[in-house]
Measured scan of single mutants.
Amino acid sequence: TGEEYIAVGDFTAQQVGDLTFKKGEILLVIEKKPDGWWIAKDAKGNEGLVPRTYLEPYS
């Protein structure tokens, strides 16, 4: 389980392990790392690192 967040901007993977997403996408945050990069999963089940500055809590 995780917390749902909504993307407030588009993000394109910079390196292997990053997750590309579009503004408005709902992501499930699995782990919040202290460096500001969180592990998240998208609706298709893809998992990767995302920058927390692009996310806001979804309710």
Rank of each mutant, 00 (worst) to 15 (best):
E47K: 09
G9V: 12
Q15G: 13
A40W: 01
A43D: 12
A7L: 02
V8E: 03
W37V: 07
Q15T: 13
G48P: 00
Y54I: 10
A13L: 04
T20L: 03
L49N: 11
D18V: 15
P57W: 07
Q15Y: 10
A40R: 00
F11V: 05
Y54S: 09
D10H: 06
G36W: 04
V8D: 02
T12E: 13
E3R: 07
F21M: 05
K33V: 07
Q15K: 15
P34K: 10
I30E: 02
R52I: 11
P51T: 04
G45C: 07
P51Y: 13
F21Y: 03
K22N: 09
D42I: 02
Y54C: 10
E25D: 15
E25I: 03
K32Q: 07
G17P: 03
S59T: 15
K44C: 10
E47A: 08
P57Y: 08
V50D: 00
P57M: 07
Q14Y: 08
P51E: 08
F21A: 03
A43T: 12
W38H: 02
K41W: 07
F11C: 05
K44G: 10
Y54L: 15
L19D: 00
P51S: 08
L55Q: 00
A40F: 02
E47Q: 12
G2Y: 14
P51K: 09
G24M: 03
K22G: 06
D18L: 15
L19V: 03
Y58T: 09
I30M: 12
L49T: 13
K22H: 13
F21C: 05
E25A: 12
K22P: 03
S59C: 14
K44V: 10
G9E: 15
T1G: 13
D18Y: 15
E31M: 11
A40K: 00
V50R: 00
K33G: 12
N46F: 09
P34M: 11
G24Y: 05
E31K: 09
K23C: 09
Q14L: 11
Y58K: 09
G17V: 04
I30G: 03
F21T: 02
V16W: 10
K41E: 05
L55K: 00
G17C: 06
I39R: 13
G36T: 04
E47Y: 13
D42R: 02
W37I: 09
L27H: 01
D35E: 07
R52M: 15
T12D: 14
T20H: 06
T12Y: 15
A13D: 03
S59E: 12
A7W: 01
P34N: 14
P34R: 05
T1Y: 15
A40M: 11
P57H: 07
K44Q: 14
Y54A: 14
A40T: 03
G24D: 06
L49Q: 11
D18P: 03
A43C: 08
D10E: 06
F21Q: 00
E25H: 07
D10A: 07
L28G: 03
L28K: 08
G9H: 15
F11A: 02
K32S: 04
K44I: 10
F11Q: 03
W38K: 00
I26Q: 03
I30H: 04
D42E: 02
E3C: 08
G9T: 14
I30Q: 07
V8W: 04
V8F: 05
E31W: 08
Y54Q: 10
G24R: 03
L28D: 04
K33D: 07
L55P: 00
D42V: 02
Q14K: 14
G2F: 14
D10N: 09
K22D: 04
E31N: 10
D18E: 15
D42A: 03
P34W: 10
G36E: 06
G45W: 04
Y5N: 02
G48A: 02
W38R: 00
L55F: 04
K23F: 07
L55Y: 00
V29S: 01
Y5P: 00
L27M: 06
E3T: 12
F21N: 00
P51V: 04
E4N: 15
W37F: 10
D10R: 03
K44D: 13
P51G: 05
K41V: 14
T20D: 08
G45A: 05
E25Q: 12
F21R: 00
E4S: 13
A40D: 00
E4D: 07
L28N: 07
K44E: 11
G48S: 01
A7P: 01
E47P: 05
D35Q: 04
E56A: 14
P57L: 12
T53E: 15
G36H: 06
E31V: 11
A40V: 09
G36N: 07
A43N: 10
L55R: 00
Q14T: 13
T20E: 10
E25G: 04
G17M: 05
E47H: 10
T1H: 12
V16E: 12
Y5I: 01
P51H: 14
P57Q: 08
L55N: 00
Q15A: 13
T20C: 05
D18I: 14
L19N: 01
I39V: 13
L19K: 02
T12M: 11
V8P: 01
D42S: 07
K33N: 12
E3H: 12
G2I: 13
G9S: 14
P34E: 15
A43R: 11
T1C: 10
A7V: 04
Q14V: 13
E3W: 13
T20W: 04
W38Q: 01
A40P: 00
Y54G: 05
P34L: 12
A13G: 15
Q14D: 09
D35F: 05
E56Y: 07
T1M: 14
A40N: 00
I39F: 13
D18T: 12
L28A: 05
F21K: 00
V50Q: 00
Y54R: 08
G17H: 07
E56I: 13
K22W: 08
R52W: 14
L55V: 06
T53N: 11
G17S: 08
K41L: 14
V16Q: 11
K44P: 03
G24V: 01
T20K: 05
K32T: 05
P34C: 10
V50Y: 01
E3V: 10
V50K: 00
T1K: 11
K32P: 04
T20M: 04
I6W: 06
V50P: 00
I30N: 03
D35S: 08
L27F: 06
E3A: 09
L27G: 00
E25F: 04
G48I: 02
T12R: 08
E4C: 11
